[in-house]
């Protein structure tokens, strides 16, 4: 798989403050790439460098194998976290202006805009001023403007903020549709459930350094602890717990079931498989619940950030 974007040890300081310290990331073609990190970690600086808004102090960035240059502006669509539109300008006029700034021809932009407006059912907003629209409505326009010129690389910084759940869902579907049409997406957010749902790859930036990156499934495999959530119906729970503790690392667990069976988190040793645990359990009682605990992005995020 080709990489659409490669950042090689990019550094940037503002005065004495180091915003990025030799950060390298690779964004595979056609992926949805989650750029994560606590507030102030340096995500926005990296995104701005990719957008050529700020220049890096050192390091370089390749887009489609070529060093980043002015002509790449039309290949990128950027929805910043701090976003807005000219309040007193009309929707259509403004969208046309922004599209033309991205290098589109006026007629083509107009045609595509009408298509988008129709699909999102906002066609009658064309002659309204932004200040007459609600925040969510303006966000929709902003989204359309970002993706209108069909860029290879889309960068969304908190794309769902300001949307109600229904519209957030519409936008999510649109992002997935764009991905299926071949776009690569860099996605920066604090909403871990959207990362879980959308991202194939992630990078975690903390205090100006990249501390984790890669394929999400691969990362999850790295972080999994071979722990299983177990529900066991038995006549003597105390005895079973003691027996288990001799073989495995056991801790109490909390999950909802229909009965009041013994609930435990059981960690399997490195040389054992889930089958070993399962067969052991069946000898102790009736197994009503058996699930491998897969670490959530949220867990991975918190764990990695805290350990650094």
């Amino acid at each position: 798989m080709n990489n659409l974007l490669e950042a090689h040890s990019v550094s940037k300081s503002f005065g004495n403050h180091v915003a990025l310290n030799k950060v390298s990331v690779t964004v595979p073609q056609g992926s949805i790439f989650g750029l994560l990190g606590p507030n102030g970690a340096g995500k926005t600086t990296l995104i701005r460098i990719i957008n050529q808004i700020t220049m890096p102090d050192s390091g370089h960035i390749l887009l489609d194998g070529q060093p980043l240059k002015n002509a790449h502006i039309k290949d990128i669509g950027y929805l910043p976290e701090e976003r807005g539109l000219y309040k007193s300008m009309k929707v259509g006029e403004q969208a046309l202006y922004l599209a033309q700034l991205k290098g589109m021809q006026k007629a083509e932009a107009k045609k595509k805009l009408h298509e988008w407006f129709e699909r999102l059912e906002i066609g009658d907003w064309w002659n309204k001023k932004i200040q007459e629209l609600s925040k969510g409505m303006a966000q929709k326009i902003q989204f359309v403007v970002t993706v209108l010129h069909e860029p290879k690389l889309l960068i969304f910084d908190e794309p769902f903020s300001g949307f109600d759940p229904i519209n957030a869902d519409i936008i999510k579907d649109e992002i997935l549709r764009l991905k299926n049409n071949g776009a690569t997406v860099i996605f920066s957010t604090h909403r871990m459930e959207s990362v879980e749902e959308l991202c194939d790859h992630i990078a975690l930036i903390h205090k100006s350094n990249k501390i984790l990156d890669g394929n999400l499934i691969y990362i999850k495999k790295q972080f999994k602890t071979n722990t299983f959530e177990v529900g066991l119906k038995t006549t003597n729970p105390e005895l079973v717990r003691q027996n288990l503790t001799e073989h495995f690392a056991v801790s109490p667990a909390e999950f909802r079931t229909l009965g009041d069976e013994l609930k435990l988190n059981v960690k399997v040793g490195e040389n054992e498989s889930s089958n070993d645990l399962l067969s052991y359990l069946t000898r102790q009682g009736e197994v009503s619940h058996f699930v491998e605990l897969i670490p959530s992005v949220n867990d991975i995020f918190i764990k990695t950030v805290k350990s650094n």
Binding site: I53, I73, P80, R83, G84, L85, Y86, L101, K102, Q142
Partner: peptide, 16 residues
């Protein structure tokens, strides 16, 4: 100032 307060500035300078 208007471009700053309406927060459109970052959108614009990602293009120009």
């Amino acid at each position: 100032i208007e471009e700053k307060t309406s927060r459109i500035i970052e959108v614009i300078i990602s293009s120009v």
